[in-house]
Write a protein that binds this DNA or RNA. Structure first.
Lengths: 207, 207
DNA sequence: TAGATTGTTAATCGATTAACAATC
DNA sequence: TAGATTGTTAATCGATTAACAATC
């Protein structure tokens, strides 16, 4: 098996599986099946088995999957069997919420640097971090060898921030600004636009 | 034409198109083409034309699309040619950031109610809103005829909150808690899990 | 053993792309 | 008119599902 040529859409489902497995573990469960997992996630059992088969054989006929084992395998596959230091750009309401969020560390990430363009915010303490100025971004990101960043600035500023992050060596960007970013092909970008999700749903609501 | 049987994946791209068109308008542009739009979004021009063709004919051969016109059409199609009142459950860091966010109203939404289970938070003023208790949820949502809600509570509480929202008549839920919700088929749910996006990207980063 | 469930193959289904006549 | 670009059809591509032998 191995990882070559796994469809991106399959990779995107692995974190969902991982999330569900962790939850099952919390609930004290030891084994699960593709059927049960699928039921829980609204995904067909065939799809789950097919997805996992890209990476190896993790189950046993008759008994299904040992949850803790499969969880560990998925962590390795997704490279979250470690802790990725992250940078956050933008110390407004969203940036603050991100900096305070307790949910990153249990899942492989930790905010290690926080930047803002507003001099009034620079130096401010947010959680365990101090807000740094934008002209410290490249040095600090290189110093900590940060490869993952989140953008939480207004849409107008996002592209320029992305440029600086890429320049500093960041390879994965989670962008909260409602704008599509242009980045070199070796840099990964994912988008979070709550309003886009809302609009997707209102399409189906009665006019 | 018409809206019957449009693939959900197509509907999901319309907000992205709408977002880009608004941006182009802001930049003072009057016309665009499927080619230009696709370039900007990293989508093929054929796909954009095909997507739009599900809903009607909005362009002109030779000149492309009048941006303001197409924007208005997409707004109508997505039902965001109005303002949807929204409820937010959870007044922690994330709920606060949501309540403060200025980006909803220009795109068809407005937070009109904010709830929290913690008595210490009830009554607190956040932006223009006052935090309400959970036992006021159903009455308030019905009173304001709210159909759209966002969940910003810990994973453990999310399913129960979803149940209450559904009970109150909510038809669309944007869930920030990292857990898959079980809801009746007539209720729409979208998920925002930043960590899942991050894990999706670290898969591609060097081990 | 009998029952359950995997991993995988083949069939189906659906989405994307290429190509082009129509036409502004 | 010549050039550009649409909307649509047909071809291609890829993802999902059904089915089942293998086996715990």
């Amino acid at each position: 098996m191995g990882k070559q040529n796994v469809p991106d859409i399959v990779v995107g489902r692995l974190p969902i599986y991982l999330r569900a497995l962790n939850r099952m573990l919390q609930e004290g469960q030891e084994y699960t099946s593709s059927h049960e997992l699928g039921e829980r996630l609204g995904i067909s059992s065939a799809q789950i088995r097919k997805d996992l088969s890209h990476f190896g054989e993790f189950g046993k006929q008759g008994t299904g999957y040992h949850i803790a084992y499969l969880r560990d395998q998925l962590r390795q596959i997704l490279h979250v069997d470690r802790e990725w230091p992250m940078a956050v750009v933008g110390a407004g309401d969203l940036g603050r919420a991100i900096a305070h969020y307790k949910g990153f560390t249990p899942r492989g990430f930790r905010v290690m640097a926080l930047f803002d363009a507003d001099p009034a915010r620079v130096g401010e303490r947010i959680g365990a971090l101090r807000v740094l100025a934008m002209d410290e971004l490249e040095r600090e990101i290189k110093r900590q060898n940060i490869k993952v960043a989140m953008i939480a600035v207004p849409a107008e500023a996002a592209q320029e921030v992305a440029n600086q992050l890429v320049q500093a060596g960041v390879r994965a960007i989670l962008n909260y600004a409602p704008i599509t970013l242009a980045v070199p092909p070796e840099v990964h970008v994912q988008y979070i636009d709550p309003v886009a999700h809302l609009q997707h749903m209102t399409y189906y609501l009665d006019a």
